[in-house]
C-alpha cells in the first residue's frame, strides 16, 4: 500500500533535490539549501517542514538555525513504494508488448 503523505512528500521535484543535497552534504540548514537551489530560504523551510512531518528528515538546533539530516530508513521505505509502482507498470508494458507482437505475427503469417 502507498502511504499518501510520504508519497506526496517525496513526489515533489524540489524536495527530491533537497534530499539529494542533504545526502550529499551529510545534512544542511534552510540557508545552506537555499544557497544551492533556485528557491527562497522561506520556500526551503516549508519544504523541510513537509519532509520533517513524514519523518524523512530530522533536525537538531545549530546556532540560530536547525540542521537537517535524512532519515535513511524512512527514505528507503519511500523509495521502495515508488519502485513497486514503477515495477507494476514495467510488468504491464511487457504484457502490452507481448500481446501486440502476437497479434502482429498472426496478421502477417
Amino acid at each position: 500500500m502507498i502511504d499518501d503523505e510520504l508519497w506526496s512528500a517525496i513526489g515533489d521535484p524540489t524536495r527530491r533535490r533537497m534530499l539529494d543535497l542533504l545526502l550529499a552534504g551529510s545534512g544542511g540548514t534552510a540557508t545552506s539549501l537555499s544557497d544551492q537551489l533556485p528557491v527562497t530560504r522561506q520556500a526551503v523551510a516549508k519544504h523541510l517542514a513537509v519532509l520533517d512531518r513524514v519523518g524523512l528528515v530530522h533536525s537538531t538546533p545549530s546556532g540560530r538555525e536547525r540542521r537537517y539530516t535524512v532519515d535513511e530508513a524512512q527514505l528507503a521505505r519511500a523509495v521502495a513504494q515508488m519502485a513497486s509502482v514503477s515495477e507494476a507498470w514495467d510488468g504491464r508494458l511487457q504484457r502490452i508488448k507481448r500481446i501486440a507482437e502476437t497479434i502482429q505475427r498472426n496478421r502477417t503469417n
Binding site: W7, D12, V50, W89, K97, A100, Q104
Partner: peptide
C-alpha cells in the same frame, strides 16, 4: 495533503 505527485517514464520497442 498536497496530492500524489510522481512521474514514471518508460520507453520500449514493440515489434508490431
Amino acid at each position: 495533503m498536497d496530492g500524489m505527485s510522481r512521474s514514471i517514464e518508460r520507453e520500449i520497442r514493440v515489434e508490431a
